[in-house]
Every structure is written in structure tokens, then in C-alpha cells.
Amino acid sequence: MLKSTNKHKRGAGKLQVICKACDKKAAIYSRKEISKEVCDLYCSCRDPECGHTFVVTLAFKHTLSPSARDGKNIALEFLKSLPAHERQALLSQSLQ
């Protein structure tokens, strides 16, 4: 029901919704966020002879590679938690 137009290039392509009734492309005309990881996509078949309207649930499954931002945030929070003299000593050591 959901497919990517290009599975071989990371980040490339668009998400396509396929009509369950006729196996043709459908348009997403609305989106309802259920949570940060789940949303409902309201869809309509593009084939005028079909006209099927339906809802598809799209959900986050798992991480393949963590965000670089996460590592930086963890490091910054750790540095902020240190007393000033320990933070300065750690930073001085990293420059050597």
C-alpha cells in the first residue's frame, strides 16, 4: 500500500500510496497526526474509474543510524553538568 519510488538512493524518491482496490497511485489529501511517531494519511485513488478513498497509517519503526544531533546534544549536556574547573580541564586536554 505504501512504497518508495527509489529504494536504492538514500533519501531519494517520494512516498507513494497505492490504492488497495485497483493497485494504481493514490493522492494524499490530508494528514492527521496521532503522535510524534504515527499519523493517518487520508488518500484518494487517482484513477477516476475507481475513486476509492481510504486511510493509511504511517508509523516510525526504528532508527538505522542515529542523528548526529543526538551525539552533540549528549556531549553538551554532559559538559554542562560538569563543574567549571573539570569542564575547562577536559577541554584543555582535548586541544592537545
Rank of each mutant, 00 (worst) to 15 (best):
K9Q: 09
K9L: 09
R10A: 15
R10P: 15
G11S: 10
G11H: 11
G11D: 12
G11Q: 06
G11Y: 10
A12Q: 04
A12K: 00
A12G: 03
A12C: 08
G13Y: 05
G13H: 07
K14G: 10
K14A: 12
K14S: 13
L15A: 08
L15Y: 04
Q16R: 09
Q16C: 12
Q16L: 15
V17G: 00
V17D: 00
I18E: 01
I18S: 03
I18H: 02
C19L: 03
C19Y: 01
C19D: 04
K20L: 14
K20M: 14
A21C: 15
A21K: 11
A21F: 09
A21T: 14
C22S: 07
C22Y: 02
C22W: 03
D23I: 13
D23L: 15
D23R: 13
K24Y: 10
K24G: 11
K24L: 13
K24E: 15
K25Q: 11
K25R: 07
K25P: 11
A26I: 04
A26Q: 02
A27C: 13
A27G: 14
I28Q: 02
I28W: 01
Y29E: 05
Y29T: 08
Y29D: 07
S30I: 02
S30L: 03
R31T: 14
R31C: 09
K32L: 06
K32D: 08
K32M: 05
K32A: 09
K32Y: 06
E33W: 10
E33D: 15
I34N: 06
I34K: 04
I34G: 03
I34W: 04
S35Y: 01
S35H: 03
S35D: 08
K36S: 14
K36H: 11
K36P: 06
E37Y: 08
E37D: 13
E37I: 09
E37S: 13
E37P: 05
V38Y: 06
V38K: 08
C39M: 12
C39N: 10
C39S: 14
C39L: 13
C39T: 08
L41D: 06
L41Q: 07
L41H: 03
L41M: 10
C43D: 05
C43F: 02
S44R: 07
S44D: 09
S44W: 01
S44Q: 12
C45T: 08
C45Y: 03
C45L: 09
R46S: 14
R46N: 15
R46Q: 14
D47I: 10
D47Q: 12
D47P: 08
D47L: 11
D47C: 13
D47T: 15
P48T: 11
P48R: 05
P48S: 09
E49L: 13
C50G: 07
G51E: 06
G51R: 02
H52G: 04
T53F: 01
T53Y: 03
F54C: 06
V55G: 01
V55D: 04
V55K: 00
V56N: 00
V56E: 06
V56L: 04
V56K: 00
T57Y: 00
T57F: 00
T57D: 01
T57A: 01
L58T: 07
L58K: 01
A59L: 09
A59R: 06
A59D: 09
